[in-house]
Design a protein around this nucleic acid. Sequence first.
DNA 1: GGTTGAAATGGACTACAGTCCGGTTTGTGG
DNA 2: CCACAAACCGGACTGTAGTCCATTTCAACC
Lengths: 191, 191
Amino acid sequence: MFHGGPVNERADAARNREKILSAAATLFAEKGVEAVSMDAIATEAGVGKGTLFRRFGDKSGLAVALLDERERVLQERILSGPPPLGPGAPARDRLTAFVDAYLDYLFAHLDLVRMSETASPGARYRIGAYRFWHRHTAILLAASRPGSDADVLSHALLAATAAEVAGVLREEYGEARARDAITALVGALVG
Amino acid sequence: MFHGGPVNERADAARNREKILSAAATLFAEKGVEAVSMDAIATEAGVGKGTLFRRFGDKSGLAVALLDERERVLQERILSGPPPLGPGAPARDRLTAFVDAYLDYLFAHLDLVRMSETASPGARYRIGAYRFWHRHTAILLAASRPGSDADVLSHALLAATAAEVAGVLREEYGEARARDAITALVGALVG
DNA sequence: GGTTGAAATGGACTACAGTCCGGTTTGTGG
DNA sequence: CCACAAACCGGACTGTAGTCCATTTCAACC
């Protein structure tokens, strides 16, 4: 059901990783991400707490593991899917398409993404996926706005797509206005 | 030394508020904001934990109280100081001046602001000061970009000035590039 | 100065994240 | 099949945020 463990994983370790991920998925669906403690996940999975933490590091690591599959799908579409999300379209169109697709992904898994980003301070920037989004947007930004400091600028842009920010915006103004505003921000930069 | 309590505050309450704020200020200066627990503050102040939490709600409330004075100074300069930060200058100049002044404030007290924003999820948006910055930027944005959804857009803009974001940018690229990028983002919107 | 009740107090208590380490399981090489 | 080291396991333990409520303090009024 779940994949992505180390290549030479011992049988008991693989067994427990599966049990943990499926227990976490079940509990999150039942009670919501916020309301589930790590103890509860360990108990439901029938493993000790130590096992849980050694394998996933912390709550954010667990969220990342659960999001892994869906993240990879989006990354694939960016790297080799059809334009404008994939290669082939002008940079500014790809950037808009990325923001749109990313917000689809984000709003579909908001609680999980929030957990992956807020478990510890600065967690978001340490996740591999964030580096991917950042590099992608930085390259597109550099192409659309030659001369600008695309590296830093793309971090500033992505700040608006943080789970906490986007969540508050959706709650306050509804998804459509939230999307439009973030898109407008990007549009102003590259338009 | 510290002010800002309720208007009809009992003498013991006022005394303890002062003791807590000065103990917190001392400990933060000594060991850094991150490394100081609420227990330690209560002990240093010579009050019970209950008193501490009752008065300030949580860690973020304590940070807000410590920042209060400096926040108010900036707000005064915006409301009635000389342009371009204060009234009288064109909206886009005021917006740039605000971002500049806000980043001065932010970088001068980064740890404290980070604590005020990250103690609990969504904490930033519940703080009175945030509402002030938001309203101010929304008004200026509406004036510079008629027809745009200034309310939501200004949240998206301010996302780049979150303590966590600005902190990572400064750490990664240095203060000058971080400032320039955030300013460029604003400039793209109103320029 | 005594009475009174509302406000404030403080420390025991709960719940949770995350660490540690003695004991167990696994799979590999002989 | 056996021995053995490395990898893994689980649950007791620590440290922290935040809650609760029986007791104490304050100040307003007589």
